[in-house]
Design a protein around this nucleic acid. Sequence first.
DNA 1: ATGAAAGCGCTAACAC
DNA 2: GTGTTAGCGCTTTCAT
Lengths: 337, 337
Amino acid sequence: MEPVNIKKLAQLLNLSIATVSKALRDSYDISKETKEKVVALANELNYQPNPHASSLRKHKSKTIAVIIPEIANNYFTLAINGIESVAQEKGYHVLIYLTHEDYKREVAFARELFNGRVDGALISVAGTTTDYTHFKNLRDKGLPIVFFDRVCDEIDTLKVTTDDFESSYLATKHLIGQGCKKITHFAISSKLSIGNKRKRGYLQAMADHHLPVSDSLIVECINDDDRDIEMIEELFRREKPDGIFAAVERYAMDGYEVCSRLNLRIPQDVKVLSFSNLRIASFLNPSLTTITQPAFDIGKEAAARLLNNLEKKHAPLANESIVFKSSLIQRASTSSI
Amino acid sequence: MEPVNIKKLAQLLNLSIATVSKALRDSYDISKETKEKVVALANELNYQPNPHASSLRKHKSKTIAVIIPEIANNYFTLAINGIESVAQEKGYHVLIYLTHEDYKREVAFARELFNGRVDGALISVAGTTTDYTHFKNLRDKGLPIVFFDRVCDEIDTLKVTTDDFESSYLATKHLIGQGCKKITHFAISSKLSIGNKRKRGYLQAMADHHLPVSDSLIVECINDDDRDIEMIEELFRREKPDGIFAAVERYAMDGYEVCSRLNLRIPQDVKVLSFSNLRIASFLNPSLTTITQPAFDIGKEAAARLLNNLEKKHAPLANESIVFKSSLIQRASTSSI
DNA sequence: ATGAAAGCGCTAACAC
DNA sequence: GTGTTAGCGCTTTCAT
């Protein structure tokens, strides 16, 4: 493990370390021949510059953090793919932090970022977060942040989302069009931007179509399958709904489970529609009608904007919202037969 | 963005930076009162030590790399969850690198790790990799590596896998037991350790049951759905198999697609069994019989062993194999009705 | 065109 | 107990 560093290269070439450093960075004031000699030896010895030294010196780490609630989730998985694709292209490294929907971990991660480990962060907020001081602090320190999907409106920075209200409205309207009269909503934490918007889209569509709604038709799921299924089952026994609009894929599957337990047929007895990025939604039994978000593109755009901002240091990220369109893909679970 | 560093703390407290440094690390030769004062101020100013300086000095980054082929894959997603859980617990950071099954990227990533950016790496080999020099070099440099799932036998280090041969044998036997006479295998790259083992398990079971096999019954899929489906469809027209044993979930879904196109019923006309970590395999149409690997535990074990080795520097990781058991979960796709 | 030297923030000998 | 000091490997003025 004897290290090949700039000093060694300099010794071997009878040059100063300054010259070697400049040669490697292709500086203008180094002669062509010297550059070539340096590069040749560097390649031969497989020289790799020490990133810590460089980061320490330049106050730039060429690393970004991705802070997300979970990873066993098709949306985030696709988003990471998008993020990674631009990071790789631009020579950035990607650190992953999973909050598991836990506010305390989110705060801990945020504190970690104060120290220059990363140049910026891509964040999707945890479901239990209600206070945003930890993010505000980051922002105040000048750390560029881009929120995606689950954003934080209180903080002035770039946010990349989808048209959650509109597509939820459309989804609910679709269920109504297929004959549903009593639609239940499996909601994601109302503390979340998207939780709120998705619920409002549902409520608005119900209201516009003169269908009664009440809190008893809404289950706020908590990402614990056993307990969520219990709550859903309870709701089914109580309300006997004929339609489900699920805010996330996982809850739709919980809905399938409950229907199966209660011997309810989808779509004959209950129609189901869900936000989902499941590639094989069409192979489900029955195939699931989904609102599908362009998750890869969202990740890509969020990362591209962040890295772009990092490159040209000056202006901080504007308080801008980029909204992608989701698409409603109709399948058997909402068929009107 | 004025930095709070050790120097500032020292100034404010009228102490030397050495004292502050030691106080923060809870060194024995600092008085209780001094420690308390230092810690109090550090908390007040939200001091976070600069990781680059510390890494540079200590030649330790408290960071590990995870190099995997892809992330939109339930197996890897679960494995990352396992990895992250122990990393978080032990205060390590996790860098993610996706090779997208591309040998060239894998080599590029490996070269990146020569420079101290990470203390160790968890690797699952790309499907196109045939030469392992890039990993050997890492090993020779003394960088601790743990392979998981897709391992590299040529390199002496810890490997964490599942019983691929045995479970493939069992899977094939199960299909035979359910009445299949002509089973096709959708194989993953035979360059991969797991590709090989899974294929051999299949071949052995076929042979032991006196069923004919030939290369024409095997499709080596390439992770490009369109082309894979084309190859599979071609095989179906040619061979008319009555069973599918898929080496990975994705290919099983391609099989579902082809059966649907050719109007073949599962399981009546064709039975399907696949390696898979899909949580909702039971909601597929028909529900899919799977061999399920303990992916979370594999990730966790691999990471725990790696970090453990990093903590007690001395001995390099032994050339050991840890083999987890997979489980066959029978569902409708192999029902003998 | 090249080199000397300072210093990024921290740690760890080694004084005192 | 506390302070002084010498780097870790690199970049970057500023001389030459």
